[in-house]
Design a protein around this nucleic acid. Structure first.
Lengths: 213, 213
DNA sequence: ATTGTAAATAACCCATCGGTTAGTTACGGT
DNA sequence: ACCGTAACTAACCGATGGGTTATTTACAAT
């Protein structure tokens, strides 16, 4: 537990480093077990401290989780919204760009498991759900549907309900997150998520196009 | 707990009715809380019995859940596979039919929450995940990818990786399930899931079509 | 070197819950 | 009427895990 440093002391005082280390450990444990099943003892052990120490820096398990959400996704979405507003080219290119970015996040980031955890335990922690929806879901859907609206206005996309299309954009990306965080572990040959996402963008953009088919 | 019948007896012997009533109660509790957080006491109470009685009919919590999966989805998928094999018309029509059927199930059935529960708690109950993947996921994906392969062979669809397209088919349906079982509860104006699914089928079929765009 | 203090530990408390079992009761057979 | 039995209950057990607290210890200031 405390065997990583030299031989002189059982532990060190590291007030500054602890919170981030605990957050990282918590992310890993929440990702592996979900919110309810993650043990504070395990989070502490992974962070190289004991449970009592975690409670020096965070009030409760729920506080720990919220801190995690706050410091991760919200900001990233707002950054992309700024990108989108400044974009000049074709809407299909803009959409491709944004979906590739979110797709990359979904395929590679550790943080991508957070939506899964939230939806999974929505029933037991409604406050967590409300928080996440306001912070992430509504912002994300609004970004995507504004791109779709732009595309329709410029005659690049067919006339479809932007709210539906926005959800069609992210559904496969959410699927990718779920696949990665559950089935992927038991696959001998890993499933090609990157190819999946490219196919998604390809099929979606063709499906949105105005040319009759 | 046992106050529903008349005044004469504290309880009745109803060996035949119990299992189904317990399964229904379990579905409701699993749907509301998830697998781990659902309490056997609550399931029993909802079924109008005590916990001991549940263990007369089911070996364990996990056995209860598995029974639920078995009696619901597995059979339905096999039925659709038979439908698909006998179908004579255009692949796009076949795919539309199948997706509408699954979509209807996703929008309306109580059982539709099962995939959500499984994926949510995959990390803690790998055996459950393995079971569900073999019983539902692989069969479902194989059904869909065979339709796609058929469509490509007949020149109705573009040449795309059927495994990717199969997942694209269900991703929005899974999304619908998740939306319904988490966010829907807090929406004042309910989101139009049926329109969403129709848009999905529309966009997907156009996106798969062979005509350049 | 000594000491004050706050960072960190380790042992503890207690509510919860899956599963078990000893006892109770409905009810068909005689 | 009265068993015999199996359906059912109710009380129990043991493990688990969130949160607390008494104690120990690193280390900066003097």
């Amino acid at each position: 537990m405390q065997g990583t440093q030299g031989l002189e002391t059982r532990w060190r005082r590291r007030k500054n480093a602890r919170p981030q280390e605990i957050l990282d450990a918590a992310l890993a444990e929440f990702a592996a077990r979900g919110f309810a099943a993650a043990r504070m003892d395990d989070i502490a052990a992974r962070a190289g401290v004991t449970k009592g120490t975690v409670y020096l820096y965070f009030q409760s398990k729920e506080d720990l989780f919220k801190s995690l959400v706050r410091e991760s996704i919200g900001a990233a979405i707002e950054a992309r919204m700024a990108d989108a507003r400044n974009f000049e080219g074709r809407s299909s290119e803009l959409l491709r760009l944004v979906l590739r970015a979110i797709g990359f996040f979904a395929r590679t980031s550790d943080r991508a498991v957070l939506p899964k955890i939230v939806m999974a335990e929505a029933g037991n922690f409604p406050e967590l759900l409300r928080f996440y929806r306001a912070e992430v879901v509504d912002k994300g859907l609004s970004l995507l549907s504004s791109i779709v609206t732009r595309g329709i206005a410029r005659g690049e996309f067919r006339k479809l309900e932007p709210q539906h299309v926005a959800r069609l954009c992210i559904a496969p990306l959410l699927f990718a997150v779920f696949w990665r965080s559950s089935f992927a572990a038991q696959d001998a040959v890993p499933y090609d998520l990157e190819g999946f996402i490219e196919t998604h963008i390809d099929v979606l953009l063709k499906g949105l196009g105005p040319h009759e088919g």
